[in-house]
Simulated scan of single mutants.
Amino acid sequence: MLRSHLNLIRSGSDTTEEAAEVETIDESVKEIPVRCLQKSQVCGRLRMKLTRIDAIRSFKNIMFLDVSNNCLDIQALQVIAELPYLILIHADDNKLSSAELKPMKYLQVIIFNNNQITSVADVHQEQLSTLELGFNKITKIDFKSKMNKIKTLAGIELLVNLRILHVRNNPIRYLDGFNEDQGKLQYINLRNCQVATLRQVKKMKVLKALDTLIMKGCPYMGGKGEEDAEKEEEDDPQIRVELLATLPRLKRINKDIVTPEEREESKMLMAHWVEEGEKEEEEIEDEQQQEEEMSQIEN
Rank of each mutant, 00 (worst) to 15 (best):
E242P: 01
H166W: 08
H90P: 04
M204H: 07
A81P: 01
Q108I: 05
N169L: 09
D14Y: 12
I172H: 02
L159W: 03
L107Y: 04
M221H: 06
E276V: 11
T197V: 06
I253E: 03
E278Y: 15
N169C: 10
T197F: 02
Q186P: 00
E23A: 02
V167T: 05
S129F: 10
N189E: 07
Q78H: 05
E262A: 05
S129R: 12
V206P: 04
P171A: 04
E234M: 00
R249A: 05
N115W: 01
G225A: 14
V241E: 03
R47K: 11
I62S: 04
V160I: 15
I253S: 01
R191V: 02
Y106N: 09
R47L: 10
E293H: 10
G155V: 02
V79D: 11
A196Q: 03
E281W: 02
E276A: 12
E281K: 00
G222Y: 01
L65I: 14
S28K: 14
F178Q: 08
T15A: 12
D256L: 04
A209M: 11
N70D: 08
Q78W: 03
Q289H: 12
L8P: 01
T197G: 03
E180Y: 05
K279G: 12
I53C: 13
E285R: 14
M294T: 08
M104E: 15
